[in-house]
Structure formats: C-alpha cells, structure tokens
Design a protein around this nucleic acid. Structure first.
Length: 218
DNA sequence: CACCAGGCAAGTA
DNA sequence: TACTTGCATGGT
C-alpha cells in the first residue's frame, strides 16, 4: 500500500507527476534561448514564442552580440509573432545590455554568478519582473528558485491550498519553505502546474470533476 | 464573434 | 498605496 506524502506541496507534486509524468520543459535549448524566451512569453503562448525564436535562429541572430548590435526596429520584426513586439524588443535590448555592462557580454559569467547577485541584476532591468527573472534563474541558470505564475496562483487558490490574495514573494516562500531545494524538482513542478491548469483549471470553464488534485488537501 | 495566452510598467486618483 | 490601462499576435 503506497503511502501519500504528509507534506501538502509534495503531495500535490506526486499527484501531478503520477498523472502527467515528467515534462522536460525547454529541452535541448541554450541558456540564451531560454532567456530570450522568458521575455517573449510574457502574457503570451509558448507556440507564438517558438515562431519568434525560430525567426531569430534562422537569421543566425540568436547571439548576445548580434542581438545587441541589431536595430531595435529590426529585432521587433523578427519577434513579431510573439506579440507586444515593440515593447519586447526594448526589453530584450535592456536585458542584453545588462549582460554586456555587468558580465562583459559573457553569458557564462552571468550563469555562474551567485543567485543573489544575478537576481538583483535581473530585477533592475526594465521589463524584467519577478516571474521573468526567476524563470531565467531556474531554467537558464539552473538556480534553485521556484517560479510563480498566474497558473500557480490559480490552481493553488482554487483548491484552497493557499490564500486567495497572496502576493508573488509570499507564495514563492511558501513553496520553497516546503520543498527540498532542488532545481530539477522546481522545474518539473512548475511545468506540471501549467499542465494541470491548462487541462482542468481554465479561467472560464474549469473541469474540476476529473482533476487529479481533487481532495489533495485532506 | 469573444476570449485567452507561462507579465510588466506607467498612469491615475 | 491600490486599481486601471496599454502593449499585439495567433489559437480555440
């Protein structure tokens, strides 16, 4: 007889992992592609982001130096399919400029920097908020940071596992206080939350009856 | 047709 | 401080 975990957050993880299996998010991509993708996916579906990334890759411009040298207007054209292309072109420029200013333009230096320093530097970039910063830290730099997004908040509050009106930092602390500090686990868990949200926890029409998380709180 | 998608910053009161 | 609005393409 398999015993359920006594930690609520791990129990949720076990349920989701049993239901969906490993997700392997952003497989086979470079850290730079994940960084750029993290900005492009702001309030945007990943499918559209892939088209934009494809444009940059096909043109051979997915490098720190090329993106920095490119005119912002031209960058905007490449990333057009991901929406908000003018504002995101500016945000990408800001982000890459920070890598240039603080890390000699060497992405590997940034990736090896401490969690505290790199997070601080990311949050100072105009256009990089807490979720984008943490997504870059977790998925590109493999730092042990739990990424919170609207799905995380929606799934956990709908199941009454967290307070409805909690903020980003509080929710993130709650996850990190209750989970082992493991980037691989954080990566999988976040992806699993997105999966269950898309299938069962949509904003308009949730299908709660078959949800793998029903009665997980007991 | 309406609504949504792995946010963020700027403006308003 | 606490809302509100602009940003924009593409899929369902």
């Amino acid at each position: 007889m398999k015993q359920e975990n006594n930690n609520l957050f791990l129990r949720v993880y076990d349920r989701l992992h049993s239901y969906y299996g490993s997700q392997g998010w952003w497989p086979g991509e470079t850290p730079l592609e994940m960084m750029v993708g993290a900005v492009l996916t702001q309030n945007t579906s990943w499918g559209n982001v892939e088209k934009a990334l494809g444009n940059l890759k096909n043109a051979g411009h997915l490098s720190v130096s090329n993106l920095l040298e490119m005119e912002q207007e031209q960058l905007a054209e490449y990333i057009r399919p991901s929406g908000y292309y003018n504002i995101k072109a500016r945000r990408l420029k800001n982000l890459l400029q920070m890598i240039s200013d603080k890390y000699e333009g060497e992405l590997t230096y940034f990736l090896k920097d401490s969690l505290e320093e790199s997070r601080e530097n990311l949050l100072k970039v105009k256009g990089v908020g807490p979720e984008t910063a943490d997504a870059i830290l977790l998925y590109a730099a493999e730092k042990p940071v739990f990424v919170i997004d609207t799905y995380t908040h929606r799934v956990f509050s709908r199941h009454q596992l967290v307070e409805e009106d909690t903020d980003y930092f509080t929710l993130q602390q709650e996850f990190m206080d209750n989970l082992p500090e493991d980037p691989v686990l954080f990566n999988e868990f976040h992806a699993l939350i997105v999966a269950v949200a898309k299938e069962f926890c949509k904003k308009a029409k949730p299908r709660c009856s078959d949800c793998p998380l029903q009665r997980v709180e007991e």
